[in-house]
Design a protein around this nucleic acid. Structure first.
Lengths: 231, 231
DNA sequence: CGAGAAGTTGAGGGCTATCAACAGAGGTGG
DNA sequence: CCACCTCTGTTGATAGCCCTCAACTTCTCG
């Protein structure tokens, strides 16, 4: 891919980003229309029921995407990181948002209003292809999680969470993770009780597989953890 | 929608079918290309790893879509019925199938080869819109199941299965279901053990909420079951 | 410093997986 | 037609995972 100047591309973070492959003209248009802003931990991007005003492209930070289930319990559908695009589904479906999006760490996020996007949407088949790619990826991811939720024990799901987090946070290759999630949030993500998360972490500690100090988790040997999940 | 003659439309089963909304010319082309055939219970439409040869449109019968999880255990991702389209995801992604599709009851299913489809695919934006709708629907459904898998007890998931089955099978409004699934398959769908399914059914029987004789399940008052799930 | 949130630990119990044994149905071959 | 076999369904017993509750500690922030 030719190196195209413009922050829309930089928003995507890297070559694998969502906008990768779009024509330069469209990238430039997006670039002009985008509104960058900062979010603190706990700030809401949008809520269930909100009308879809545009899409959000994460430049830096992590965002939790969740629903409220039975009994007001939060369920985290997905954790979005740099390069991920949020809020596009409601626009595709022409409906209101059906989930919440909330920053879990200090984040820099660009907003692209639907008004600015609409003319491009209708003019270019590239956007359909983009949307298809995004949906497909999200669907694969969700199906994988459904399988894990059905067939894995809580401890294994915790392991999966740690490894996933490792990939999202330590793209640099480091094994020391500053996990921005509370124990309750981890529990809401893997579908268990916070106490179970704590005891799971403790067990892994005792087995010298990880080291935990507050929100910092070190994974000396990720490959070893992955091996535990094989069988 | 104007009534368009052609079996492609009839394949879709009803006005809400997947092809609904496509131009008549495309429908006619699909109609010419389709190959109808019959499947017995247990017959495989395609397997994980198979190259994507085309799409399957279910005219009659039920098909289970599943993966093999840890320890060779089957996990049913979805149950497809009349009007549902299968196998299109591998074509969109340009990859091999990543799951299995198998008839669970006597079925009539039309096959549309990718070769016949390809020229249409590239020529028409309608197909993108169709694919987006299908993916979106599938994703919503999967997310709902993920939530249920994480937050509902096995008995509640059984209830959800029965109600879903009711909708799929008894479109005529009847409350008497000829469920084509074995207890093991029900267990694989809701993510539990077959014994748990059996005991759940028995408990519902004792509470006079359903009547079970072999594979026939009667639900006198679906609304009452649904109310149990509210809280 | 105080209050509230987050994290931790222990005890208890319910849900559910697992194992084992058996009953019934359906299909096959003699 | 019957014997046999296999697959499915069923039941009971047992064990273990994990949820719930409650108390307590630690951290954070005004």
């Amino acid at each position: 891919m030719a190196p195209v100047e413009g922050t829309a591309l930089r928003c995507a973070g890297h070559a694998g980003g969502p906008f990768c492959g779009l024509p330069a003209a469209i990238l430039a248009a997006c670039d002009r229309a985008k509104i960058p802003s900062s979010y603190a931990r706990g700030q809401i991007l949008y809520q269930e029921g909100n009308p879809a005003l545009g899409v959000y492209c994460i430049q830096e930070g992590l965002v939790k995407v969740y629903r409220i289930g039975t009994g007001g319990k939060e369920h985290i559908l997905r954790i979005a990181g740099p390069g991920d695009l949020l809020g596009y589904r409601a626009i595709l479906a022409g409906s209101a948002h059906d989930h919440f999006a909330e920053a879990v760490s200090e984040s820099r996020i660009c907003f692209l209003s639907v008004d600015a996007l609409r003319p491009l949407l209708h003019r270019s088949a590239d956007f359909s292809a983009l949307a298809l790619r995004l949906l497909e990826r999200e669907l694969c991811e969700t199906e994988r999680r459904l399988l894990d939720a059905s067939q894995r024990k809580a401890d294994e799901r915790l392991l999966l969470f740690l490894l996933d987090c490792g990939e999202k946070l330590a793209a640099a290759g480091g094994t020391r993770l500053e996990v921005p999630f509370t124990r309750v949030e981890i529990a809401d993500y893997i579908g268990t009780a916070p106490e179970t998360v704590i005891r799971g972490l403790r067990r892994l500690c005792r087995q010298k597989l990880i080291r935990v100090t507050r929100r910092v988790i070190e994974i000396p040997d990720p490959a070893r953890l992955r091996r535990l999940l094989q069988r």
